[in-house]
């Protein structure tokens, strides 16, 4: 895991984002245990409360569940929810793109064109 200690993005958000990605990409599978809160804090050289907050955020999103006294486990991600998570991420990124387009005064046509070009390049 990679942490920027002096970034404006809070450390707990950075941790949550990276674990979220691992779950969504299937690197962390359903039923798998997350590292213990204090173990992860020790490995990352950060406070216990920071990792705890990251886990709580993931738990609120329904990605993991706290099992009393035994730490956090990855939830089974059903297809629809996974898709929803992915769509949310996609929408967020596209919103950023629209924001940039508005600043630059670029119209919808041009944005669609750019998207198509990029899409084909990736293929």
């Amino acid at each position: 895991m990679k942490i920027y200690q002096n970034s404006s993005e809070p450390i707990y958000k950075q941790i949550a984002a990276q674990i979220r990605e691992q779950i969504l990409t299937g690197k962390l599978k359903a039923g798998e245990a997350l590292p213990s809160i204090r173990g992860l804090a020790q490995d990352l050289k950060i406070s216990v409360i920071t990792t705890m907050k990251a886990y709580e955020e993931l738990s609120a999103e329904g990605l993991v569940t706290a099992s009393k006294g035994r730490g956090y486990y990855v939830n089974a991600q059903d297809e629809r929810m996974l898709k929803e998570q992915h769509m949310r991420q996609l929408e967020k990124n596209l919103t950023d793109a629209i924001y940039s387009a508005r600043i630059a005064g670029v119209g919808l046509d041009e944005v669609q064109q750019t998207l198509e070009t990029l899409w084909n390049m990736e293929e």
């Binding site: 213990s36 204090r38 216990v48």
Partner: peptide
């Protein structure tokens, strides 16, 4: 962190300081 992690959730640390700067990433409360 090692002390706290060795017995997850059962151990606690209290320390005093007049200069927290270097201890920030080991402070929860």
């Amino acid at each position: 962190r090692e002390y706290l992690s060795e017995r997850d959730g059962e151990r606690s640390v209290l320390f005093s300081t007049h200069n927290i700067a270097d201890m920030e990433f080991a402070t929860d409360h």
